[in-house]
Design a protein around this nucleic acid. Structure first.
Length: 159
DNA sequence: GCCAACGTTGGC
DNA sequence: GCCAACGTTGGC
């Protein structure tokens, strides 16, 4: 069963264009237990990921990626030179997890947060809930389809 | 730059 | 285990 997700990245930290250039990336640096649990236990190889740019004007979804490797320990957590270093982590005792993703589809047209908010069909989407800060969120298929349509695509473009 | 929302920390 | 203080996220 393929599932769908949304991941947030700050535009000036790791943009979609960088993922396209890199070809893949490990989604490191998530230091939130809820998001950790999802990446460790729920995100599966072949799941699709909406790539959301936060901290920019306007915030928007830029494309779709796919999970290419399931949850494994985030090695930046025990790297004392990393900004994501967590002194409580060791290789024997990992605390944080990440997945690998690859770009699948660059949107013809980015879908902005105001556009998402304007859509009645997306009313109950997690991202649009007040105070929603989770950097990894589950997305319903019906919502994914609406967003793909807004971006000028269909489900066929990612399968 | 402001501030609401919410997660984490640490004293008790 | 409670909860006040503090830090972070992220839209506006």
């Amino acid at each position: 069963m393929v599932a769908y997700w949304l991941m947030k990245s700050e535009l000036d930290v790791y943009p979609w264009s960088q993922l396209v250039e890199d070809g893949w990336t490990h989604w490191d640096g998530v230091r939130n237990y809820q998001a950790r649990n999802m990446m460790r236990d729920e995100l599966k190889e072949g799941d699709y990921v909406l790539f959301y740019h936060s901290n920019c004007k306007p915030p928007h979804i830029a494309g779709v990626a796919i999970v290419s490797r399931e949850g494994y320990p985030d090695f930046t957590s025990w790297d004392s030179h990393s900004t994501y270093y967590d002194a409580k982590c060791t290789t024997e005792n990992p605390r944080w997890f990440m997945v690998d993703i690859e770009p699948v589809l660059t949107f013809d047209k980015i879908v902005t947060l105001p556009e998402l908010r304007d859509s009645e069909e997306l009313e109950d989407m997690a991202l649009l809930r007040r105070g929603q800060r989770l950097s990894v969120q589950k997305v319903d298929l019906k919502h994914l389809e609406v967003i793909l349509r807004m971006a000028g695509h269909t489900l066929e473009d990612i399968s």
